[in-house]
Simulated assay, not measured.
Amino acid sequence: MSTQARILEVAAKLVAESPNGDVSTRAVCEAAQVGAPALYRHFGDKEGLLSAVVDHGFDKYLATKRERTPGTDPVQDLRDGWDTHVEFALRNPNLYRLMNSPAMRTPPAAALESHRILTSDLQRAAEQGKLRLSPELAAQLIMSANVGVALMLVSRPTTFTDRTVSRRVRDAIHATVLTPDVMTSAPASPETTRPNTQPDTTHLPATAARLNTLLHQSPTAALTPAETALLTEWLNRLANTPRS
């Protein structure tokens, strides 16, 4: 095993065993039996080491997503993606808290890749007319809620004791970004009571989100770059403007 790999393995073990998820570079060096110069040469500083630990641990989680063949139903993929995200956090609480710590000034590559995978699923939903917002905005809403729920479950377990909270929040957020017909036809969670369906006022936003996604995938020579940029702005505005 290389020195870099040994340092990374030891650091990951110490993070998992730490009461608060934090470790010192001194403790890592002692456990890995290397000098501080070797650690700094491979990882730059403590933040670089912890970022590498996050990427190393989260890589196992992302491996299942990378190898996954997208299903025919992107909405089900979105539901499964939410649930596996929370399950990973519960199995790796220290690693997950570290990944989302404000002290990490540079977002770990794993977090960025996870966001790209989510956006890709949402783009497929938009292609099928199932999205009422642009994929980019929908991804921000879902990811912020998903991370928020997961952090509460791992950081405040004595307060957030009801694990059904995750799926309740998931369904509420999906009802915001997906068209009503999708939510009506979705299998209800055992703990969730769905509200009465309101008149469909999302036809225009959903169509705008779908057209915008299709145009990005298959640019047309009928429009100049300036016209394409303007149309994209209009479609995003139609898709993302809050409805009263």
Rank of each mutant, 00 (worst) to 15 (best):
K46P: 07
L95I: 11
L151P: 00
L90W: 00
V15S: 02
A16E: 09
T241Q: 14
L141A: 10
D45V: 09
T207P: 03
S101G: 04
Q33F: 10
E136Q: 14
A31K: 15
T220Y: 12
V15F: 04
L214R: 15
K60E: 13
L62R: 14
L153P: 00
T228P: 04
A186T: 01
L62E: 05
A208S: 13
L215S: 11
L137Q: 07
L133A: 07
N146F: 00
S144F: 02
L137H: 12
T3E: 14
A221H: 04
H56C: 04
T201D: 12
R91I: 00
L118E: 15
S155W: 07
T197S: 04
L238H: 02
D181R: 06
S18T: 11
E227V: 01
D162G: 05
A206N: 15
E67G: 10
S144D: 05
L178I: 08
R156L: 11
D80Y: 01
S218H: 15
D77R: 01
L122I: 03
V165N: 09
Q4L: 02
G129C: 06
V147S: 05
L211W: 11
T3W: 09
R116Y: 06
I142H: 00
R105E: 08
T164F: 08
N146C: 11
R26Y: 09
A31N: 11
T72E: 15
L211M: 12
A188K: 13
R79N: 14
P180R: 06
L215V: 05
A111Y: 01
S189D: 08
R68P: 13
V86C: 10
L8I: 04
D80V: 05
F88G: 03
T228C: 10
V169W: 02
M104D: 01
R168N: 09
R41M: 06
P219M: 03
A103E: 12
H115Y: 13
L153N: 00
A89Q: 11
P242T: 12
L137A: 11
T84H: 09
P180I: 10
R91S: 10
A52E: 06
Q4Y: 01
P107V: 00
A36L: 01
V86D: 04
S218W: 07
D80P: 03
T184M: 01
A5D: 15
T232N: 11
D162H: 05
L78Y: 08
Y61V: 06
D22I: 05
T64V: 06
T201R: 13
E30H: 13
Q217W: 02
D80I: 00
S144G: 03
P108R: 00
L62K: 10
P219E: 01
R194S: 04
V147C: 01
T232D: 15
P107E: 02
L133N: 05
R168W: 13
A139K: 04
H115T: 15
M152Y: 13
T228M: 13
L50E: 11
S134N: 12
D59M: 01
S101M: 08
K60D: 07
L204P: 13
W82T: 06
A188H: 13
V165H: 12
T213K: 07
C29A: 14
T228L: 12
L231Q: 11
W234D: 15
L14Q: 14
Q76H: 08
R97N: 11
V165Y: 12
Y96D: 06
E113L: 04
L112R: 01
Q217M: 08
A36P: 00
T3K: 11
D59E: 09
Y61E: 06
E9Y: 07
V182Q: 00
